[in-house]
Design a protein around this nucleic acid. Structure first.
Length: 262
DNA sequence: ATGGTAGGTCTCCTA
C-alpha cells in the first residue's frame, strides 16, 4: 500500500481546524505534517480529526508562535524533537510511521527582512538552524526517511516569480540556497516534488499582502518534500493544491503532496 | 522606494 504524505503550513491550527478537516476529506493523505500550528500541544484540536480516521497525533507546540504537528491514520512513534540553533522554538518533530518509514517535519526560521547576519540577528539564526540541520543528518545518516516542511527557502529559478528581483530577498538569496544545499548533501536527500515536476514555475506560498494573489501570482516554493536516496525512486505523484490558497480564510501556504510506494 | 495583510501572548511581536 502506498503512503500519501502531505505538508502544509496551516498558520494557526485552531483557527483553521475545519480547513484541516476539509483537506483530510478531499485529499485523504495518510499522513499530514503541519507547520505554524501556533498552539500549545494540549490545545491542538483532535476530536474532529479522529472522527475522520486520523487517530494519531504527535506535536511539538508552544504558545502563539511556531509549532509542528503530524496527524496520521497509521500508527506513529516519536523518534526525535530537536531545538536546532538553540532557539527554544517548536520547529521540529520526527516520527516513525507504521514501522515503514521515518518523517522529519520542519518549520525553518523565516529569517527576517535583511539578508545580513551582522545587521539582522534573525538571518543569522536561520543560517545557524540550517547548518545544525546539516550536522545532524551528517551524523544520523538517515535511511528510509522523508523530510518535509516549510523550509522558508525557494531554491530554484523556477521556484520564484522573478529570480533576478528576488536574489536579495530573504528566502531566495544565494547564501540561503547554499545552506539548504548543504542540508540536502548531508544525507543525500532528493527533492521529490522537483523529481516529479522537474520544470516549470511551481509555488506553494503567496503573500497575504498582495491585493490579488491569484492574478499577480507572485509566489515562491517555500515548502518541500525530500526523501533519502534509498526510497527516492519510490516517490511519485507529487502535486501542490493551489486551490486551497483560495479557500475561505486561507493559510498563505498551499498544501503539497507526494506518495511513496514502500 | 514603500507598504500592503494576517494571526496571536493583541496598541506589539511574528510572518
Amino acid at each position: 500500500m502506498p503512503i500519501k504524505v502531505c505538508s502544509w503550513n496551516i498558520n494557526s491550527v485552531r483557527l483553521r481546524e475545519d480547513s484541516v478537516c476539509r483537506l483530510l476529506s478531499e485529499e485523504t493523505p495518510d499522513v499530514l505534517c503541519l507547520q505554524e500550528c501556533k498552539s500549545p500541544e494540549d490545545k491542538i484540536p483532535t476530536e474532529k480529526f479522529s472522527k475522520l480516521g486520523y487517530k494519531y497525533l504527535i506535536a511539538s507546540g508552544q504558545k502563539g508562535y511556531n509549532g509542528v504537528a503530524i496527524l496520521s491514520r497509521l500508527p506513529l512513534k516519536e523518534i526525535a524533537r530537536r531545538d536546532f540553533a538553540s532557539l527554544e522554538h517548536a520547529r521540529h518533530i520526527a516520527v516513525n510511521v507504521d514501522n515503514k518509514l521515518n518523517i522529519h517535519n520542519f518549520y525553518v526560521p523565516a529569517g527576517g527582512d535583511i539578508p545580513d547576519r551582522n545587521i539582522n540577528e534573525k538571518f543569522g539564526q536561520k543560517l545557524d538552524y540550517l547548518s545544525e540541520m546539516a550536522e545532524y543528518f551528517q551524523s544520523q545518516k538517515p535511511q528510509k526517511s522523508i523530510l518535509v516542511g516549510d523550509l522558508n527557502i525557494a531554491p530554484g529559478e523556477e521556484d520564484v516569480w522573478d529570480h533576478k528581483k528576488l536574489l536579495k530577498i530573504v528566502s531566495h538569496t544565494p547564501q540561503e540556497i547554499q545552506a539548504l544545499n548543504e542540508v540536502m548533501l548531508s544525507a543525500n536527500w532528493v527533492d521529490i516534488i522537483r523529481k516529479d515536476i522537474p520544470s516549470g514555475l511551481l509555488y506553494s506560498w503567496w503573500s497575504y499582502r498582495a491585493r490579488d494573489w491569484d492574478t499577480a501570482n507572485k509566489g515562491r516554493r517555500l515548502d518541500h518534500i525530500w526523501a533519502t536516496k534509498d526510497i527516492a525512486d519510490k516517490g511519485y505523484g507529487s502535486y501542490i493544491s493551489r486551490d486551497v490558497r483560495g479557500w475561505e480564510k486561507p493559510s498563505d501556504h498551499a498544501p503539497i503532496f507526494s506518495s511513496f510506494d514502500l
